[in-house]
Every structure is written in structure tokens, then in C-alpha cells.
Design a protein around this nucleic acid. Structure first.
Lengths: 229, 229
DNA sequence: GTCTATATACGGATAGAC
DNA sequence: GTCTATCCGTATATAGAC
């Protein structure tokens, strides 16, 4: 698998994400025509991510958002009840989709090493396809209310746990030596997150997501004594 | 070297940092008695980091800061001319100190591998000693004005360059094989930054900074075929 | 040096016309 | 569905007393 095949197979369009969000928030969204809502939600989310990722969600005023989307203040408020809820809408959905795709893809891998490589690649590919969403949910996590902050932390620990379990499995099955798999998982996660946190840097250096994935795999392969070509 | 010895040898007290900041900003600080300024700056910085690292610098109001420091709004404004300048004061100083200490320590190491290990350890030890400052300057970098944002990016690239140079040197001297050292340096940096970005997680898992340092060194040692005990 | 009181602007959010 | 006009709270920053 590489990024190209992933993109065509998965097709997680922003459009689709917006449609899901609309269905889940039909109660708080005042407009009822699905096509209109999806079209405008996409505009709103794009604009929010664009402005927030430059100067922070708190620093983005509703007037900024109005200017960027071309919608009036009043119109904006018929798509979400408050600025805080807008934040929550953006945060939750991305996590659910990522988790589902990640689990589906891992299930298709046979050995622990295959599972490991799949996790690394799929995580990177997801964050590549939805970079502004990933960046946003990392940087704005602390602006959530306590309840949702717990959800964000749990989600962080979920990937860590996934990776640690795979590494543990491989050690139990004798594919590689024992290590502190919890620390390893944390280090891998750090490398995966750096891909979307420093996107500008990687772009400037002309590093492709596939090249990055293979390097992360090679580094951990060496540490776990897995022979890689 | 371990964290204990580092801490006693270096003694980068917050107090000292505040004193340097005072001297550099003597023109904009209205109060002139050094002892008073240093004492209050320490209170102000501690409070700013505490509040900002919880809910973000933008979300911290001057009234929050007044409450936390015990100083009135009026008093606060005699220590800095605007909230933005306060942000800048916090950002700049930390970088200068870190860079100086890092370069001093690396100069004392003989081989590329020793230099590498020193860089990893010193970076982690610095961020351990000044965790709130490191976290803050990472998370709030985007709130700086463009001029200072460039300085922050340069500082990011400086550590990357330092690491890449060391790795390059080692390859040239035949200590290890050729690799894409630029990517390697980025991955290492990501692991180093994760230490202060996810401090809560590491604390909960009872991972010590020394244990973390040795794991990062072991991982990259394996990738670069360096024999580690 | 530090305080209280206040000027002034800008923020989120809503009402009601079209 | 979308707009304009506006309410009202809270923000940063300053003036001037002590």
C-alpha cells in the first residue's frame, strides 16, 4: 500500500465528513435542506480551519469567519448554536472516522509486523488527507470543555494502546525481543504526529508521506531487530 | 551525565532568567528597583505559564493574570506595555539560554556519537527543567507577530541542523552508514519535543527523563548500527 | 510602586425584516 | 435561508489618587 492507492480506496472526502456531521447535529442546525447545509458546512469548516490554524481558534472572531465564508453573522448562527459548539463539531467527527478506518485496515493484516506497518502508514495517510483537521484538533484540544477534553485524551491513548498491543504481541510470538513497548509506542506516536504538526517543514524539504512512513518503519524495525529490505 | 548531575551543574534558575529579561527590557519596564522587578516578573511569568498552558494565552485575560499574581491591573502594566509584549518576553529568552547551554555541552563531547548522545540528553534535560516554558513557546508560537514567528521557525531549524550535522559527520567518519540525516534529525526532534508536550502522560506512566533519553538513544543507535550496551 | 475607577473597543449572540 | 442592526458583556489599556 502507498498513499496513492490509499486515497483512491478510502475516499474520505471532506464532503462526506460534513454530511455525517449534519446528520448527527440535525437538532441544533436550523436549516433543513441537506444540500444547502452540506455546502455551507464545508465552507464554514474550511474557513475555520484556515483561520484557526494560522492564529488560533480563540483569536478567530465570528466576524473573521463571516468575512472568509461570505456568510453573514446571522446566517452562521443558523448552522451552529455557539462558537464553542462549532469547535466541538470539528473535533469529534475526525476522531471517529480515523478510528474506524484504522481498525478496519489493521484487521486486514496478518502478522504483528504487518499490523505495525499498516498502523504507521494508515495513520500518516489519514493525517495527510485531513491535515488541517488533525493539526486543529491537536492544537485546540485545550480549548474544549472538560468533558470533551477527556474524550481527546482517551483518543490519544487509544492509538498508543493499539501500537503497544501490536508490539507486545510480536514479542510474545517471538518475532522480536522484549522492550518497554509503552515507551516505544509513545515515541512512534510522536513521530506520526510530527508529520502533520510540521507540515510546512516537510513540504519545504520535499519529503513525501511515503518516504516518511518508510523511514519511521525502518527506524523501529532496526530497534526491534526486524529485517527490512 | 544524568539529569541529577545536569541540574546541579547548570542551575538555570527561573530567577536568573527573570533577571536577564529585566536587563534586556529595562526601557519598557517602568519600575526601576531590580529586586522588586525580578520578584514580580517571576510571579507574572509563573502565573502566565500556569494559566496559558491550561487554556491558552489568548484565553487568559488580564484579570485572570491579576487574580493569579495578586497584582492589580495597573501594577501589571508597569511591568510590560501590552499583553503581546508579555508573550514576546516569555518566548525569546528561553530560546537564547537553551541554545547557549546546548552548544557549550556539545563542544565538550569528542566523537559524533558522544555529541549525539549529549544533544539528546541536554535537550531533554533542559525541557524537563523548564517544561512550562518549552510547552508554552511551542503552543503559542502562532500568536507571535510575523517577525518573531520567523525567529521561532529559525530556532526550530537550528536544532534540526545541529542533529543533522552530527549525523552527517559520523557517516563521513565511517562510524555509521549513510542515511537521510535530515529526516532522521526531524524524527529525533519529534521525540524530544514529545517529552515536554505530553508531560502528563509520561508522569502517569512513571517514565523518568533519563529512561526516556536512553530509549531515544537506543532507538537511533539501532537505526544507525551503533553498538550500545 | 500599587491601587481603583474608567475610557473605549470589540467580542459573541439575537431579533426581526426580507 | 440570509441579511442588517443591535444588545450587552467583557476585553485591553490608561489616568490619577495614594
Amino acid at each position: 500500500m502507498n498513499y496513492e492507492t490509499f486515497k483512491t480506496n478510502i475516499a474520505i472526502s471532506k464532503r462526506e465528513l460534513c454530511r455525517v456531521i449534519f446528520r448527527e447535529h440535525a437538532d441544533t442546525i436550523q436549516i433543513k435542506t441537506e444540500e444547502t447545509v452540506v455546502r455551507n458546512l464545508e465552507k464554514i469548516f474550511d474557513a475555520t480551519l484556515k483561520i484557526s490554524n494560522r492564529k488560533g481558534f480563540q483569536a478567530m472572531s465570528m466576524r473573521d469567519l463571516s468575512r472568509e465564508t461570505g456568510l453573514s453573522l446571522g446566517a452562521l448562527y443558523s448552522y451552529f448554536p455557539s462558537k464553542d459548539k462549532l469547535l466541538a463539531m470539528l473535533q469529534n467527527q475526525r476522531r471517529g472516522v480515523s478510528r474506524r478506518i484504522l481498525e478496519e485496515q489493521i484487521a486486514g493484516a496478518a502478522t504483528p509486523w504487518e499490523k505495525f506497518k499498516t498502523t504507521v502508514r494508515v495513520h500518516l495517510y489519514l493525517s495527510e488527507a485531513l491535515q488541517p483537521w488533525f493539526y486543529f484538533s491537536y492544537m485546540e484540544a485545550k480549548n474544549l470543555d472538560p468533558r470533551q477534553q477527556r474524550a481527546a485524551i482517551e483518543s490519544e491513548l487509544f492509538t498508543d494502546g493499539l501500537l503497544a498491543d501490536i508490539l507486545e504481541q510480536g514479542a510474545l510470538q517471538g518475532h522480536w525481543p522484549e522492550r518497554n513497548h509503552e515507551i516505544s509506542a509513545g515515541l512512534i506516536k510522536a513521530m506520526l504526529q510530527d508529520w502533520y504538526l510540521k507540515r510546512g517543514k516537510h513540504k519545504r524539504r520535499r519529503i513525501s508521506v511515503d518516504q516518511y512512513a518508510e523511514t519511521v518503519i525502518a527506524v523501529m524495525g532496526a530497534y526491534y531487530h526486524v529485517n527490512t529490505p
